[in-house]
Each structure stands twice: as C-alpha cells, then as structure tokens.
Amino acid sequence: MTTPHLARTPYRTLGRSGTVVFEQALGTMTFGSEADEPTSHAIIDFYVAAGGNLIDTADIYSAGRSEEIIGRWLAAHPSEAAGIVLATKGRFPTGPGPNEVGTSRRHLRTALESSLRRLGVEHIDLYQMHAWDAITPVDETLSFLDDAISAGKIGYYGFSNFTGWQLTKATMLAERRGWSAPVTLQPQYSLLVRGIEHEIVPAALDAGIGLLPWSPLGGGWLSGKYLRDVRPEGATRLGENPERGMEAWKQRNEDPRTWQIVDAVAEIAEAHGASSSQVALAWLVAQPGVTSVILGARSVEQMRDNLGAVELELTAEESEKLTAVSAPAIDDYPYGTPGRAQRHRGLSR
C-alpha cells in the first residue's frame, strides 16, 4: 500500500501530560457502520504508516463494534499496537437499565471493563467522559477516574462536549481533592463552528487542557463537496441518508456566512494546489490549545487527503483571512456589550 510522503511528522503533548501524539487523530465513529471491517483495518494501516499514533473511539460507536474492530487490528499488529495511544469514551446508554448510562461509579465501572474487553487490552491511554452528567455528582465521577488511574486501567482522562464552567468546575475540584487532573477536552470546532472560543477555549488554556476537536470539517461542508442550493446526492452522508440532517443542511445552506467561509477556503486551496479539506485542517491545527484534530474517514482515499494537511503551511495572511471570514458572532451579552465594542475600536469612555 502506498503511503503519503510527509515533509514532517508533527507531534504534540497530550494536554499537559508527557505523552506525545500526532497532530491528526484517527476518529473511528464510521467503523462498523459506514466502513466495514476490512476497510476500517485498511484505514488504520494507512494512518499508522503515515506516522499517526492516536486512535479515538467510544463504547457507543456502532454499538461497540468500532471498539471490537480496533481490538482485532491491535491483536493482529502487536508491534504497531505498542506505539498506539488508545482513546475511548463512556457516558451514553449501553443498555436499557436506569444504571446503564451516565458517569456514576457504577456505570463507568462496567462501561470501562466492557471497553477493555472489546479492545482486547488491559490499559486504555485516554478515557473520556462523552458528555456532562447533570445527575451524578462530579466528585463521584472524578474519584472513579482517579481510582482507575491508580489501578492501571487508564493512563489519563478527559472530557467531551463540556461547557466552560463544567470544565473549570471539574478541573478545580480534582485539584482541591488531590486527584489526577483531566488532560483533554473534545469539543466540536471548525471554521464553521467557533463558538467555543468565547468561554471553552479560554477555560481549557487556563487549565492546561489540550483540545481534540471533532467534526473539524464541519460535517463535510469544508471539504467543498456541497454546492450552494443543491441538495446533497450520491456518495455523501446526507446524499445517502437525507433524513440524517437535512433540516440542519437547509439552515447552513441559507446562511451567507457558510458560503463566505467555503469560498475563502476554496480560493486558498486553489492557490496551494491543495484540497479544501487540507486548508481547513491546517487552519484548525494551528489554533491555540489544539493538540490533535479528530479525522473520521469512510475510505483510505479520504484519510490520504486529510493527512495531506500535515504538509500544508498557510501564510500569515491566509490564516488571518480565514480567521476574519469565519469570526463567530459576539452580538449577545456579555460578549457584545457596547463598552466592549468601543474598546475593540480603540475608544474609551
């Protein structure tokens, strides 16, 4: 199999930990659903051969099949598996019972053991809470995670889909109790979705937490595969399954900001002889706090194109253009107060 020639293989520390990961992580939500096992294994082969070492999954991806597919690849490639930084998640329902969901000690104990079994390993490098649990006390969750680290079942832990206050509360509680601190946060983040820059990014930077953005291509919009006012068809997720999110597609299609961003990305891509996906990824990986962007793929061809972003260097002017055209709205209080707007214009009262 032909692998890409990378001018560099950039690695970064996993948040404030000492573990080093590739700046592009392999997301595996497609494994077992949109990518069958042979295709999934081929994607892993290609990713690892290109220098990638961070594989991210979750217990609910394809009802556990994603973890099983990864587990069989790890078992079949023991030498390569030794270099993999393995990440998974727990939180969402794994059964019909009232205790088969959430971040309680009871549910996480069974969820973690099940993930270890499906992955065929005794240790998971990064165990992530897939979302906030408003019912379980935070100290119960953090105490379990600290115990899991002490027991050698996980190396680190992180969160996904947390707000700024939730992230700060958990981080400060862990510090106050003397427990192991979180090292990562998985938020949705891309040129199209930058709302986390208001509170979540500052909270993560303050705590030394690394960001692992999911949906870095905005659900495919930043790849350039969607056309203005043209309903998706063919080999796209919405084309194959229109009910999946057609209403969201309509809203994004009707938003002028979407096409300003898509057009700017395409223009820069043409100047570099690169793909739109590569430009969008190159911008995102350079943002403050970003450790590694999570790339989902349904084929080796998609993974090959995405990995090409590692070779792409945007100029300062290009990065500034993308940042300006995609700037998130700050009209709402407290971000858009009159005083703040005047200060942004260099005025004072």
Rank of each mutant, 00 (worst) to 15 (best):
G18M: 08
G289Q: 05
R340P: 00
A248K: 06
E100Q: 15
R8K: 15
I135S: 12
P38C: 07
D263E: 13
S150R: 09
Q186Y: 01
G64P: 06
E23I: 09
V310C: 02
N306C: 09
Q166I: 02
L307I: 11
R12T: 13
R105S: 02
V48I: 14
S143W: 07
T19M: 11
T337H: 02
R177G: 02
Y333C: 01
A286D: 12
S115G: 13
I60V: 14
E80L: 10
G234W: 13
H123Y: 13
G152W: 00
A58S: 15
S276V: 02
L222K: 09
S62Q: 01
L126H: 10
V285D: 00
M303T: 08
A286H: 05
R117M: 04
R177I: 11
G120E: 12
E175N: 07
A203K: 12
E175R: 15
A181S: 09
L212H: 04
L116H: 01
I261A: 04
V101I: 12
V262N: 04
L322I: 10
Y47P: 04
S33L: 13
S115C: 13
D263M: 13
G224R: 11
A76D: 15
Q260M: 11
A316I: 03
E267F: 06
G346R: 05
G224N: 10
T39P: 01
T30L: 01
G224W: 14
R65C: 08
E113P: 04
V20R: 15
F92E: 00
A309E: 00
G164A: 15
E197L: 10
S17W: 02
V85N: 09
D59S: 04
T88R: 00
G224K: 13
Y156D: 01
R72H: 14
I135K: 15
